[in-house]
Design a protein around this nucleic acid. Sequence first.
DNA 1: TCCTTATTTCGGTTATTAGCGAAATACAGA
DNA 2: TCTGTATTTCGCTAATAACCGAAATAAGGA
Lengths: 98, 98
Amino acid sequence: MSDVFNALSSPTRRQILSLLKARDMTAGDIADQLAVGKSTLSGHFNVLKSADLVTTERNGTTITYSLNTSVVEDVLAAVVGLLSNEEKETKGESDAPV
Amino acid sequence: MSDVFNALSSPTRRQILSLLKARDMTAGDIADQLAVGKSTLSGHFNVLKSADLVTTERNGTTITYSLNTSVVEDVLAAVVGLLSNEEKETKGESDAPV
DNA sequence: TCCTTATTTCGGTTATTAGCGAAATACAGA
DNA sequence: TCTGTATTTCGCTAATAACCGAAATAAGGA
């Protein structure tokens, strides 16, 4: 879950997810919409993939990214958990520097 | 909103919020439950306060922390936004290097 | 005023990451 | 095989943050 919240903590990555909410897009499509270099975007894609927030499919030379709504739903559940009075989370996991 | 997701990206801070979900606690109470130094925790408190996820009240020498559920609800809305098909967010804001 | 308790600030170390451009890789088509 | 397009990897720099212990601050009570 840390990975997911960390992925969501970047405005650029939230923008990517917002774009993908509307429709699946290739890396190039997304790069055309955002003001960061393609290599930088590639790094953001890796973060989003590690958090399982997006899925990918290669078609020829292009790679299409899609929003993974089931993981977004998991985030939702985690946040709702903070509002309800059940029990805990975060065991075993510990902070990495920054 | 970046501040909020960033605050939530740390397991230690999510643990603090989970503790506060059950009841208001002083910094010392929280320190007794977690395996990090008090100075480190103080840093985490600042992050949570900046994100407006907690509120504080001083009583004598102790400071009591409380969960700010209204901001948690804002997070909820932001995540729900990723699942619905309305429009965008993140304008003006840009990534700081980590 | 002095002492004790609670909490934060400071100084330092180490690890992580956003960003860039250039080079490398992957694939399709001629 | 060679070429062109799409995307990622690499090397780098600068900024941020988690952590610790020690020192500083805040407040109350003797």
